[in-house]
Every structure is written in C-alpha cells, then in structure tokens.
Amino acid sequence: MCRDSIGPVPDDLLTPDPLQPYDAVLLVSFGGPEGPDDVLPFLRRVTAGRGIPDERLVEVGEHYALFGGRSPINQRTDEQLRALRSELKNRGSELPVILGNRNWYPLLDEVLPELAAAGHRRVLAITTSAYPSWSSCRQYRENLAAAAPAELTVERVRNYATHPGFVTANVSAVGKALSELSGDPATTRLVFVTHSIPDQMALSSGPEPRDRDGEYVNWHRHVAQAVAAEAAPELPWELAFCSRSGAPSQPWLEPDINDLLTDMAAQGVTDVVISPIGFISDHMEVVYDLDHEAAETAEELGIRMVRAATVGTDPQFIAGLADVALERAAEARGEQVHPAVLPGAPIGLTVCPANCCVNPRQPDKPAI
C-alpha cells in the first residue's frame, strides 16, 4: 500500500482554498493485510476486546489464503485516494489528501500525530463507509477521537450513500451486469447486498427519531429503490445481507444472500444480478462472500449469477465525495448549504448527537 508523505501546511493556503477552514483531507479506510504474515495480527486488531480466540481467527484467515493472504481493499483504496486527489485539485483545492486506516498501516494513531507534527490543525475526514450505524460510522468516529492529538481538530463529512453520485455509479454498474444476462425477465431478479449487523445495532442506527427498522436498513432501502427504478424498473428486487459473524444466539439482519438464492431457486428464478450497494470498493466481504460463496451457491442451484461492480473510482462517485467535502467546508465557514441528496431520502449528519448509532458495548465512548 502507498504510504503518504505528510508535509507542512502549504504556503499557498494564504490564498482562499475551497476546502478552507480545513488544512488537510483524511481518507479513512478499514485497511487489510498485505500478505500471509499480516492476516492474524490484522484480525486480532479488528476483533480486539471481543474475546475471540485465535483458533476462530485462523478459520476466518483461511478466506484470505485464497487471495495470497492479501485483501483487495488496500489497492482499491489507493485508487480511490488518487482519484479523489485529482477531483479535488480540479475543483481548485491544493490541500494534501492523506490516507489513514483503522486496522492496518498506515494507521490512524500514526497518521494523525504526524499531521499535527507537520503543523496541520483542522482536518476533514472522509470515511470509506457510506451508511449510518455503529460499525459503519460511529466506530470510525471513535477511532478518530482516540487517535487525534489535542492540538488537532478532526471533523467529518456526512454519510453519503443517498448522494446522487453514489446512486448513479451503482445504476451504471447494475446496467452493465444486466447486459451480461439474457434470461427471461420473468425469472430474473435484482438483489442488493450489504454487510449484516446485529438486529439491535441496526435498530439503534442513526439519530432519534429513527425509522422503524433503524437508519442502516432505511438508507439501504432508499438506495436500492433508487438504483432499481433507474437501472431495472421491470425487475423485482430484494435486499439481502452477507458476512454474519456473531454468535448463533444473537439475531442479525436477514436474509443471508445464500438463503435468499436458495429460496429464489425454489420459486423458479434462473438469473440474478447481485449489486453490493453496502460497499464502495471490493474487499473480503465482496470477493469472498459474494464472488466465492454466493457464486458457488448459485451454481449449485442452477442460477446464472452476475455480480455488479462496486462504485470504486467511478467518476460520478468520486465527484460525489468531492461534493460532500466542499459542502462540509462551506458549512464550517458558516455558509448556507443545500446538500445534494436523492428526493425524499435521508440526509446524513455532519455532527452527530450522543444517541446516534449507539456503541453496543461502550455507549459513552468519545467520538468526534
């Protein structure tokens, strides 16, 4: 993975920059192992404090072995980092755009002190997770709060899944995937997939008052509906989940993608497009859970399955990230902001109340 060189605040920021009052942009990703020797240390870091034995982590690590012990997320994030730098530069910003990871190098607890030491004082964070929940939003905010030195202020952009750029990029990906199928529309289905989380975490996602099922599910339904209406209005669609990792006794969001495929086959479905709208790039939950496990299930059931691409570096998506960064900067300057968002869809918060996406184990843990 590319390691950024963090320099001092540029002199040319004496002239107005569209991202002022910020003096750096931090792209915050999950991170992933770069080789076999990294897998177990990486998984220990991801699951720290949860009491999961190494024996179980070794089992999970076998997923990475299929890919040489290397997660694809690092390369995909580097590509997004370069694309975002270029887009912000095209918008007139000269701020450095730096990468920091929660779970692997370059780690936030190294990058943020380096930014402070180089003279940066107010940083805008853009996370690589687009939806509200503890695991996909507040946990990132907690990690940023824990890693930031006292002299460094870190703020963030809003959750951006309902930005039109994210939706348009997914529409393009679904359209391309559908073009690879030639089945009867009557027996073809569109399935949107995201990461499963515990039911209780889903119900407490977002600020109060919440949608009946919580904002995590609500946001996914808004995005799925918008993508389906544009890309395949004639096809039925469903929302499914992958990557469940909790104890069998703990309820998690369902249906699992493999169970849904089994049910669809019993109903005579022959062709399925899977759209991973819960992810902005390929990583283990996509390349293993969907491209390997779900594809294997579909083959056994006699279903032709095509997996739509994640948004990655689609220009519409990257432009959307730049949009929300510029929105946040304008808000920080005290200007009136009109967020770009799907009609009727929820708008993410830039400053969250204490009861937003509650931490299931440590509800009072500090977060930016």
Rank of each mutant, 00 (worst) to 15 (best):
T47C: 04
T47D: 04
A48R: 15
A48I: 15
G49W: 03
R50H: 14
R50E: 05
R50M: 09
R50F: 13
R50I: 10
G51F: 14
G51E: 15
I52Y: 09
I52M: 14
I52C: 06
P53D: 10
P53G: 11
E55V: 14
E55D: 15
R56H: 07
R56V: 12
L57H: 13
L57Q: 09
L57W: 07
E59I: 10
V60K: 15
V60I: 15
G61L: 02
G61R: 00
G61F: 00
E62C: 08
E62G: 12
E62N: 13
H63L: 13
Y64G: 00
A65G: 00
A65F: 00
L66K: 11
L66Y: 07
L66D: 06
L66A: 10
L66W: 05
F67P: 02
G69M: 02
G69L: 04
S71V: 06
S71D: 08
P72N: 01
P72T: 01
P72F: 01
P72H: 03
P72E: 01
P72A: 03
I73R: 04
I73W: 07
N74E: 01
N74G: 02
Q75E: 13
Q75G: 12
R76Q: 12
T77E: 07
D78G: 02
D78N: 06
D78M: 05
E79N: 10
Q80A: 01
Q80V: 02
L81Q: 10
L81E: 05
A83D: 07
R85K: 10
R85M: 08
R85V: 08
L88E: 00
L88D: 00
L88S: 00
K89I: 03
N90Q: 15
N90G: 14
R91Y: 06
G92D: 04
G92W: 01
S93H: 01
S93V: 02
E94I: 08
E94P: 01
E94Q: 09
L95F: 06
L95Q: 07
L95G: 03
P96G: 13
V97W: 04
V97E: 08
G100E: 01
G100L: 01
R102G: 09
R102P: 12
N103D: 07
W104C: 06
W104S: 13
W104A: 14
W104H: 15
Y105A: 15
Y105H: 14
Y105T: 15
Y105G: 04
P106T: 14
P106D: 08
P106C: 12
L107P: 06
L107N: 04
L108D: 00
L108V: 02
L108E: 01
L108C: 03
L108G: 00
D109C: 11
D109L: 13
D109W: 06
D109Q: 11
D109K: 08
E110F: 10
V111A: 12
V111Y: 09
L112S: 05
L112T: 05
P113Q: 06
P113N: 02
E114Q: 14
E114Y: 01
L115P: 09
A117F: 09
G119Q: 03
G119D: 03
H120T: 05
H120G: 05
H120C: 08
R121S: 13
R122S: 03
R122V: 00
